[in-house]
Design a protein around this nucleic acid. Structure first.
Length: 562
DNA sequence: GCACTGAGCGCG
DNA sequence: AAAGCGCGCTCAGTGC
């Protein structure tokens, strides 16, 4: 059973239509005031357990969660459309030409909540989501496109898992990461000094700036200005081409150390300091919005608060509640393993038989040098040509012709302007007409630039197939994890039997997931994490002679993970 | 004053 | 040791 959810003509209402899997309407559509929506959804969920179909989960689910209503499954039509529009598997179906225009994002449901940004136009357009006719037509068009595609099973899996992730993302946003404001403030005080009042810098930054100005003999220097800084460095005889820290570290000069220290503190103060704390941490939780499929490769992005760039420096402020632990799980060497599976390179798969793939590769041919094996393999996935990893490529190619050949072929296709596709069917967007035109250029200078652009695109497509398929593995892992956690019988696993005592996914970062878990459930949830990873591997690749091991640590404090 | 870009750096 | 992939955030600087 499907339950289609759409915007009613009146903005403050929704239309709900039940429909069978065969597309037959089950009863009349009902119009529900937005304020009654959660109650209606809750009772339909209990009665029919339908698959909810809506323009975007993000436009509907947050308000349901706020009313403590959760759903088992959905179709997020916008996320499915983003996949199907470009997928090579649906290229012959004509779907891309007929897809409905993407629904706007509902501003009110977003995590930022300060609502200071966003033009008047955006606020107006945000008020109208898809109506019932659009939702019905788009669902039909998507089902038809998948059914007539070259790989219906893979696209069904991908679009289902992606929709499940939309639910995961909204739930994570709602839960938030347990975040101890007092510990964060203590960390800031230790590193930066007392909280400054007004528009001044913290003590420790001012001290370092003064040391730096003295060392460079530049009393008026603003260390935040790359231009001023570059001039001052050159005057002091430090001949750098940029002021990047790795380049500065090559030089020996009394100004380098205070400059690097200043940079580090400045970054902490401006990005994750007191202002960040006030803006993003409320009632002991850090809430950020996740953007599923926000990256071309299908990885998640985040909006607001920089959830996916939390520096290691402040992870100590993430603490599990009393009686709880964080279960932090990350997939070991996910991308190299994905490459071995995609290329069906059984030699590389054999190297990954034990839990450390890099060590296995090092043992097979890099004289046991694990770091060397790692640099070489990542270089192959990123398209490195120079430096140490570039020099190691010939040896890697001799050892694993299938794996290296696979990414090389993806690179060549990208250079020719073709699209490439992940295991489950996410394709790169087509090259622009401008890009294609530039490839047929006449002058030598244009030719040189065109070749450079082609190589850049080759590195992109080379990485896309691996990073994108890794994102699909992680997406399936999350979906399986969510399903299994929901299936835990509430009364047998918690003392209080309340929603608050259930294990909750609270953070996800590409190949790592964090579950906030009551102490009594740590063993059972740890097993679920592992079971879900094995399920994800089977869903993507079937039965293959390669494991995707997951490292699990149980900690009170996120800083103690790995 | 606003929108945009580049530099720099945080994460994987 | 080197600088190859994908992002988001902040600030300085620029152009209107």
């Amino acid at each position: 059973m499907y339950a289609l959810v759409a915007s009613a003509p009146e903005n403050s209402a929704a239309t709900i239509q039940l429909m069978t899997a065969e597309g037959i309407l089950a009863g009349p559509a009902q119009t529900v005031a937005r304020s009654d929506l959660a109650g209606v959804v809750s009772s339909l969920e209990r009665e029919h357990a339908p698959r909810w179909v809506w323009d975007r989960a993000q436009n509907w689910y947050p308000e349901l969660l706020a009313a403590n209503v959760r759903v088992e499954r959905c179709h997020d039509l916008a996320l499915r459309q983003a996949i199907l529009v470009h997928s090579a598997f649906t290229a012959e179906t004509g779907y891309g030409d007929n897809a409905a225009m993407l629904p706007p994002e509902n501003e009110a449901s977003q995590a930022g909540s300060t609502s200071t940004q966003g033009s008047l136009f955006e606020q107006l357009s945000a008020s109208t989501g898809w109506d019932l006719a659009t939702v019905t037509a788009e669902l039909g068009a998507q089902k038809a496109a998948i059914a007539s595609s070259t790989h219906p099973a893979r696209l069904t899996l991908l679009t289902s898992a992606e929709s499940a992730c939309a639910l995961v993302a909204a739930e994570m946003q709602y839960e938030g990461i347990p975040w101890r404001e007092d510990l964060h403030r203590r960390l800031l005080h230790e590193l930066l000094g007392p909280e400054p009042t007004g528009y001044v810098h913290p003590e420790k930054m001012d001290e370092l700036a003064a040391t730096l100005r003295a060392a460079l003999d530049a009393p008026a220097l603003n260390p935040d200005s790359p231009q001023e800084l570059m001039r001052a460095l050159h005057r002091a005889g430090i001949d750098v081409k940029s002021t990047r820290s790795w380049e500065l570290m090559e030089f020996k000069h009394p100004a380098i150390e205070p400059l690097l220290a200043y940079r580090k503190l400045s970054r902490l103060f401006t990005t994750n300091g007191w202002t960040w704390l006030e803006q993003w941490v409320h009632q002991g939780r850090f809430h950020s919005e996740y953007v599923v499929g926000g990256v071309v490769s299908g990885r998640w992005a985040s909006r607001g608060g920089g959830a996916m760039q939390i520096p290691k420096q402040i992870r100590g402020a993430a603490r599990a509640d009393p009686g709880h632990k964080f279960i932090v799980a990350d997939a070991a060497q996910l991308e190299p393993r994905v490459l071995a599976a995609l290329a069906q390179d059984s030699t590389m798969a054999a190297a990954g038989r034990d839990s450390d793939l890099y060590a296995g590769i090092a043992a097979q041919g890099f004289g046991g040098e694990r770091d060397m094996a790692k640099v070489a393999l990542l270089g192959a996935i990123y398209g490195s040509t120079s430096g140490e990893s570039g020099r190691l490529m010939p040896q890697l190619t001799r050892m694993y012709p299938l794996a290296v050949g696979f990414v090389e072929e993806a690179a060549r296709a990208g250079e020719r302007g073709e699209t490439v596709t992940t295991r489950l069917g996410r394709s790169t967007p087509p090259v622009s007409a401008q890009w294609r035109a530039s490839q047929r250029s006449s002058t030598a200078e244009e030719q040189r630039r065109a070749e450079s652009a082609a190589r850049t695109r080759g590195r992109f497509t080379r990485n896309f197939v691996v990073q994108g398929t890794a994102a699909e593995w992680a997406c399936c892992w999350l979906a399986e994890l969510r399903r299994r956690l929901r299936a835990l019988p509430l009364e047998t696993v918690t003392t209080s039997g309340t929603q608050a005592d259930r294990p909750a996914m609270v953070f996800f970062l590409h190949d790592e997931v964090m579950v906030h878990c009551p102490d009594a459930l740590i063993e059972v949830v740890t097993k679920i994490v592992h079971d879900s990873s094995r399920a994800a591997t089977r869903l993507l690749f079937g039965e293959i002679p390669l494991e995707f091991p997951v490292n699990v640590t149980v900690v009170e404090n996120y800083a103690d993970a790995k």
